[in-house]
Simulated scan of single mutants.
Amino acid sequence: MKLEQVIEFMPESIRRLIGRQTFLPGEAIVRKGDRADHVYILTKGSTRVSNEFATGQRYTFAQQNTPDLIGDLEVLAGQEFYSTTNEAQTACETIVMSADTFMQWMRRDNHFACAIAQMLAAKMYPTSNENGRIKFQPSIQRLQRYLVRRLDEAPSELFVLHSNRQQIADDIGTSIKTVNRGVNKLRETGFISLFHGKISISVEQQQKLRSLKFDT
């Protein structure tokens, strides 16, 4: 049974204990280091999942879309604090419940427990696989892969990337200085252009960027 159906048939005893909360783009739903005392079900919108380190560097490594859960991993693992920051990428609507209510629902509803297990497996496998691989990619290769992914998300004859350098650095797990070096290198070799400081990519450049090969 899918999560949407599970929510529809939520036990009345649980329904009385839940709430609903809306988050605007950029607002943190949970923040790394805060007490993991609530679980959220994302019912509308998308979020960015990132990890922050003592150096001040932030690495955005995943995106969550409807329907999905936030905070479930920490609660199920018995962890006291959230391990990552999860912020709204678009306007988000959520169902919110205490950690105790979440565990109570898991024990009472086998369909809910099954849906959570399947979602956790689907969410964790590709994320762990990518995290293990991306650390070994040169930064310019990460930037190239990132730009190709953004091109795929919004095809255009003249693509303009509106993300700032900090956002790019967060998304590929590096520093602004490293991003700037990569951008300059790709511009100097004709793979991208700059328009008022924004990365722009023509049709010809898109083809070159997609076919760019790196030594392995």
Rank of each mutant, 00 (worst) to 15 (best):
L69T: 12
G71A: 07
G71K: 11
L73M: 14
L73I: 14
V75M: 05
V75K: 04
L76Q: 04
A77R: 11
G78C: 05
G78S: 07
G78W: 12
Q79A: 12
E80M: 06
E80Q: 12
E80V: 03
Y82F: 15
S83C: 05
T85W: 03
T85P: 00
A88M: 00
Q89S: 09
T90S: 14
T90Y: 00
T90F: 00
A91N: 05
C92L: 06
E93N: 13
T94N: 05
V96Q: 10
M97D: 01
M97G: 02
M97Q: 06
S98E: 08
A99L: 04
D100P: 05
T101S: 10
F102T: 11
Q104E: 14
M106S: 02
R108H: 05
D109A: 13
D109W: 10
N110M: 12
H111I: 03
H111F: 08
F112Q: 12
I116W: 07
I116C: 13
A117W: 02
Q118W: 02
M119K: 12
L120G: 09
A121R: 00
A122P: 00
M124H: 00
M124S: 06
Y125A: 09
T127V: 12
T127P: 01
S128G: 07
N129A: 10
E130P: 01
N131A: 00
R133I: 02
I134D: 06
F136D: 12
F136I: 01
P138R: 09
S139N: 07
S139V: 15
I140P: 01
R142A: 06
L143I: 11
Q144P: 00
Q144G: 01
Q144L: 04
R145N: 15
R145T: 10
Y146N: 04
L147F: 02
R149E: 15
R149N: 14
R149P: 07
R149M: 13
R150G: 02
R150N: 14
L151N: 09
D152A: 15
A154Y: 04
A154P: 01
P155T: 07
S156P: 02
S156Y: 00
L158Q: 13
F159M: 10
V160Q: 12
V160I: 15
V160H: 05
H162A: 10
S163K: 14
S163H: 15
N164T: 04
R165Q: 15
Q166I: 11
Q167F: 03
I168L: 10
I168F: 04
A169H: 05
D170F: 12
D170S: 09
G173E: 11
T174N: 06
T178N: 08
T178I: 15
